[in-house]
């Protein structure tokens, strides 16, 4: 589960608060949409939760051990991300120099999962995301929808506690977006993970269990 409390962050360039005193939680198996206007700080909030940016104040706890990611050093934050968080991005961000199977294996390598277990887990997951037989393909030969499926498989392969998705369907046509979204939600629920999805799409927000709206005044 994810618990955010009293979180504050000032704008990096303009000397004004971006958000302050934010607090919310996401339960295990719960999928929450985070919506709001451009520039309000949705991506920054996501970055703070992932430990990619540091909050000025407040605490963020991920998982049963309740580690506060704000107080951790960079190496420990990286280790926490590797074990507990899965990411899905709008721009897919699949490594072009690794095959599909190698891309999906990256989180397993970072979590020190024995290499012998990689093959069965990756093959099973590829089947679940509809990419059976794609393991040896190079990313350059895949469509946008296929790339995002690879990204979803990579986000779930190490069974993280929390999935963070930033506009996961933003680069896809409506039909592919629907398919990818359904797949993401289904797999997240199946793994009983918590998920926070940043989106501008009302359709995506409606598909989630709950919606949080970030405004300059705070969360609604």
């Amino acid at each position: 589960m994810l618990t955010v409390s009293g979180l504050a962050k000032r704008h990096a360039k303009a000397d004004r608060p971006l958000f302050s005193d934010l607090g919310f939680s996401v339960a295990n198996g719960e999928i929450v949409a985070l919506v709001g206007e451009s520039g309000v700080g949705k991506s920054t909030l996501l970055n703070c939760i992932a430990g990619l940016e540091t909050a000025d104040r407040g605490s963020i706890h991920i998982g049963p051990r309740a580690l506060d990611i704000v107080r951790l050093d960079e190496a420990t934050r990286a280790a926490l991300r590797a074990r507990s968080i899965g990411f899905v991005f709008q721009a897919f961000h699949v490594l072009p120099t690794l095959t599909v199977a190698q891309n999906i294996a990256v989180p397993l390598l970072l979590c020190d999962v024995p290499v012998g277990e990689h093959g069965p887990r990756i093959r099973a997951l590829l089947a679940r995301v509809g990419l059976t037989g794609f393991g040896d393909r190079w990313p350059a030969s895949l469509s946008g929808g296929e790339l995002q499926r690879v990204a979803i498989a990579r986000a779930l392969v190490h069974q993280p506690l929390l999935i963070l998705a930033d506009e996961p369907t933003g680069n896809l046509d409506p039909r592919t977006a629907d398919e990818v979204l359904a797949l993401l939600l289904e797999r997240v629920r199946e793994q009983q993970a918590s998920a926070l999805i940043v989106t501008h799409s009302r359709h995506v927000a409606r598909s989630c269990d709950r919606t949080l709206t970030l405004t300059p005044e705070g969360l609604r």
């Binding site: 992932a50 990286a78 991300r81 590797a82 968080i85 961000h93 490594l95 990256v106 970072l110 990579r154």
Partner: peptide
């Protein structure tokens, strides 16, 4: 740089 940033996001430590 984007690829290394992605690896960093996925949990590859700075060191």
């Amino acid at each position: 740089s984007t690829q290394f940033a992605l690896l960093g996001v996925l949990g590859l430590s700075p060191s």
